[in-house]
């Protein structure tokens, strides 16, 4: 198993972002997390990526307890996270943002020299080639379009080469055609390199088209966890239903 969540919950002060929830993701699986705003998608992805620690319960990444994996090289080899806000350094050229994925493997001197004369440039080139913006190598990241920056962030993950990729709303800021392109790219990479992929999305159509399994979150609880083909319109309607009573009825029925 790539990820195992065992009765994991997360609260920020008095706000419960995630109620106790258990989930297992196999190696090589592609999983989409869907749900309305504030459902807890980012929170769930941050737990999988080792970005935050759970308030209760246990997170296991590749068989290792998350508590034993502080941010650093070991965690970086297991999971790479693409945040909703990308978190690139806008002042650096694209090539340096891409090669930042190698910092865990580099000594300090090498990282310093690389800022002047980029090291392992062939890795950066190959990654940028794969995401389709090879010509932007030396462009300042701040000057790239939102979609191009998304690709730079993805190229950084390719260079980091973790066993699993966790992507928070990777297509939120893209037009529909580019969103499909990027998902194709992302799932293609996962398939070709045998990487596990967990991504949150707002579009159920895209989730069904590109992912094998879909998890629905609603107000911090697991609404459904099904193979993509088994997700029906009824599931979707219930997930996005604005009427809060539907939720209470559902929990009452489950008892």
């Amino acid at each position: 198993m790539m990820f195992v969540l065992d009765a994991v919950s997360k609260a920020y002060g008095s706000t419960v972002a995630l109620h106790p929830l258990s989930l297992a993701v196999a190696r090589g699986e592609t999983l989409a997390v869907v749900g309305p705003s504030g459902a807890g998608k980012t929170t769930l992805l941050h737990l999988l990526g080792g970005v935050t620690q759970p308030s209760a319960g246990a997170v296991w990444i590749a068989g290792r307890p998350l508590a034993s994996l502080p941010p650093g090289r070991e965690l970086a080899r297991l999971v790479g996270v693409m945040h909703q806000q990308l978190d690139l350094v806008p002042h650096l050229a694209a090539v340096h943002n891409v090669l930042a994925g190698r910092l865990g493997e580099w000594r300090l001197l090498r990282s310093l020299v690389s800022l002047v004369a980029p090291r392992e440039i062939e890795r950066a080139l190959a990654a940028l080639e794969r995401v389709g913006i090879r010509d932007k190598l030396y462009e300042r990241t701040a000057r790239l379009s939102g979609g191009e920056q998304q690709r730079v962030a993805l190229a950084r993950l390719l260079v980091q080469d973790p066993a699993a990729i966790v992507a928070d709303e990777p297509v939120a800021s893209l037009d529909p055609a580019r969103a499909e392109d990027l998902l194709q790219l992302l799932t293609g990479i996962a398939r070709d390199d045998g990487k596990t992929l967990v991504a949150s999305l707002h579009s159920i159509q895209l989730a069904r088209r590109y992912f094998a399994r879909i998890v629905g979150l609603r107000r911090g609880r697991l609404a459904f966890d099904l193979p993509a083909a088994a997700v029906s319109q009824a599931h979707v309607d219930r997930l996005y239903d604005l009427d809060e009573r539907a939720d209470d009825l559902a929990t009452a029925a489950a008892r």
Partner: peptide, 14 residues
Amino acid sequence: PLRALRASGASEWQ
């Protein structure tokens, strides 16, 4: 961006 760098394994110097 600093958190993202640490997440890809960078040391504080890096």
